[in-house]
Amino acid sequence: MKPAAFGYDRPLDWAAALGLLVQGARPMAGGQSLGPMLNLRLAMPEAVADLRHLPGFAGVAVRDGVVRIGAGTTHAALEDGAVPGRLGAILAGVARRIAYRPVRNRGTIGGSLAHADPAADWVAVLPCLPGDAVLLGAAGERRVPLSRFVLGVFETALAADELLLAVEIPVLPEATRWGHWKFCRKPGEFSKATACVLAVPGAAPRAVLAALDAGPCLLDDAAALLRAPVEEAARIVAGLALEDPWRAALAKRALAQAAEMAA
């Protein structure tokens, strides 16, 4: 349970951080996923680039109706209301159920998203929200819609020499409806099935089903799911042809539950 030896660097500006990536360093935000992986020797990087001290890495700013959440913003900050309004309430509700408070104090929204563990909470929730991931590479910034950032199991739109700077999500109207449900064997454990449903007034409702040992499954038009949660959830999950009937049952129930909450 002790890590293999690794080098440690603490870049103080973004150019230095990108330079370390080119040299093969493993980027680390809060280290709450990478830390255990190092101890278990599931990860044995030559070097770790600690991103926590980069300028602007953590923090929330609202400008022109868009909330920009620095990648290094902790789950605990979001749980404690760092983001205002309806969107903030949604994010706080999700954050509160991530792992345990001592983990949330260091774990970050960007680290979790970039790590792309299929059971992670932000991997399930952010694809359901409008907005973009902001990526930084040697050529500058580029944006990827949150719905297309996570591509699969531990797989994202990030290139090997890019870092996640922030997520940007438009302020949501107060009348936005939201449902989120996950099954964990005990509070804080990795989810066995997570679903969320977002209904913004005037836009087609969206849903995501996740934590199924695959990337998040995005449903672009969840109107039928909102009308008949139980029947539609059964139909959608049947279409995924999950092998394990227990996981399929959890997925169905999570999706129906989230839809009922958002209805």
Binding site: M1, K2, P3, Y8, R10, M28, G31, Q32, G35, P36, L38, N39, L40, V48, D50, R52, A76, Y100, R101, P102, V103, N105, R106
Partner: peptide, 27 residues
């Protein structure tokens, strides 16, 4: 447990509880 699950090693770091098993000396 040494992988952040059991909580026995929890201490306060920068004013908030944190796992001291998955936090390494460099950081």
């Amino acid at each position: 447990c040494e992988h952040g699950v059991c909580g026995a090693c929890t201490v306060e770091v920068d004013g908030a509880p944190a796992r001291s098993c998955i936090l390494h000396a460099g950081a």
